[in-house]
Design a protein around this nucleic acid. Structure first.
Lengths: 195, 195
DNA sequence: AGGCGATTGCCTACCGTTCGTTAGTTAGTA
DNA sequence: TACTAACTAACGAACGGTAGGCAATCGCCT
C-alpha cells in the first residue's frame, strides 16, 4: 500500500525542487538523485525536462482547482461575508503550507520564458473557477449593480495576502490578514449603507 | 555627452535580461552579445557573474529608494488621503514601466538561492523607508492609536496592486486600482466615523 | 613638449564542468 | 517472449571562468 510508483516519486521530487529553485535552477541530476535513481532513468518516464515540468504543473493546477472548488462548496450555508472571509483564510493556508503554493505562485509570476504560453493556458481554468465562485458569492451579498468594485477589491485583497505569505511569519501574516480583511469588509458595508 | 560607459551599458543590459529571465536563465554570453562585446571582456569590469548581478541589484534598490523618497517629498502639501493615493499610483507606474520593477519583484520573491541573504539585506533599507513614510502619513491622518490596521491594509493594497501589474493590461489594471482604492478609503473613513 | 612605461579594455583561444539527451545493455516480470 | 525500468557510457552544446596578447590611452619624468 505504501509503495509509491517511481513515476509519482519523480513528480513529487521534481515539484519540490522546481518550487524552490525554479525550472532553470533545477537539474535533472538533482531530481534523479532525490528520487534515488540515475539521471538517464528519468527518460523511461518522461520525454524530456519540459515534459516532466509541464506534467508537474498540470498536477498542481488540478490540485488547486479541486481545493478551491471543495472549499467553496463546504461554505455553502454560511453568510456571504463568512464565505469571503474563510475563502481568504483557506486560500492563504493552502498557499503557505504546501510547496504547491510556492510553485503555483512562481509559475504565475515568473514562468520559464519558453513555456509561458502553455503554463498560462493551464492557469486559465483556475482563474475562471475562482472568479465565478467569488462573483456568485458577491451576487448573493447585495444585488445592486456595482458589485464589480467589491469584486476588484476582493481580488486585490487576495493577491496582496498571497504576496505577503512570503515576507512574514505565519503569526505576523495572520495579523495583517485580519487587519486588511476588517478594513475591506468595513468598506463594503459602509458603501452599501451609504447608498 | 551621449557616450555611455561600457560599464553602464553592461549593467543596463544585464538588468534587462536578469529581469526577464532571472539569474539562472541569463548567461554571460547573452549579456555580452547584448552589449556588443565578447564574453570574456565582461571580466574586465566585474569579478564574476554574482558580482555583476549584485551590482545590478544594488543599483536597482538605490534607484527605487530615491524614487520613493522623492515622490513622498513632492506630495508634502497634499492631504493624507491624496498622499496615499498618489503614492499608490506612482508606485504602480514605476513598477509597471521599468524593468526595474520587474527585477525588483522577482528578487523579492524568488532570489537565487545562493544569494538570498545578500539580496534581502539590500532590500531591508527599502522596506524601512517605505514603512516610515507611510506611517508618517497615517499619523497625520488621524492620531488615534490603531493606525496599525490601516497601515496593514494599505500595505496589502500596495502588494495586491503590485502583483496585478503582471496579469492585466494597463487600462484594466488602472480600473482595478481605482476600485480597490475606493473601497479601501471608504473603509478608512467609515471606521473613523464609527468611533 | 615629447617620449615612455604602466594601465585599461578588448580580443582569441581554451579550460573543466555540467547540462539535457541518446544509445546500448541487462535484470526482472508477466 | 516481450516488455519494463533500471543501468553504464558517452555525446555535443553551453556554461562560468582563465590565460595571454595587442592596441589605445593615461600619468609622469626629463
Amino acid at each position: 500500500m505504501k509503495e509509491e510508483s517511481t513515476q509519482n516519486k519523480i513528480k513529487d521530487t521534481a515539484l519540490s525542487l522546481f518550487a524552490r529553485k525554479g525550472f532553470e535552477g533545477t537539474s535533472l541530476s538533482d531530481i534523479a538523485s532525490g528520487v534515488g535513481i540515475k539521471k538517464p532513468s528519468l527518460y523511461a518516464h518522461f520525454k524530456n525536462k519540459e515534459d516532466l515540468f509541464l506534467g508537474v504543473i498540470y498536477k498542481v493546477t488540478v490540485d488547486y482547482n479541486e481545493f478551491f472548488a471543495n472549499e467553496a462548496e463546504r461554505l455553502n450555508g454560511e453568510s456571504p461575508e463568512n464565505q469571503l472571509y474563510y475563502l481568504l483564510v483557506k486560500n492563504t493556508e493552502y498557499l503557505r503550507n504546501d510547496e504547491l503554493g510556492l510553485i503555483f505562485k512562481r509559475m504565475m509570476l515568473f514562468p520559464p520564458e519558453s513555456l509561458r504560453e502553455e503554463i498560462y493556458q493551464m492557469f486559465e481554468k483556475t482563474e475562471e473557477v475562482m472568479k465565478s465562485v467569488i462573483k456568485s458569492i458577491l451576487m448573493q451579498m447585495d444585488r445592486h449593480k456595482d458589485w464589480e468594485q467589491v469584486f476588484d477589491a476582493y481580488l486585490c485583497l487576495l493577491d496582496g495576502v498571497f504576496e505577503q505569505v512570503f515576507y512574514y511569519s505565519p503569526e505576523e501574516h495572520q495579523k495583517r490578514l485580519e487587519n486588511s480583511w476588517s478594513l475591506f469588509i468595513n468598506g463594503v458595508h459602509c458603501r452599501t449603507e451609504g447608498k
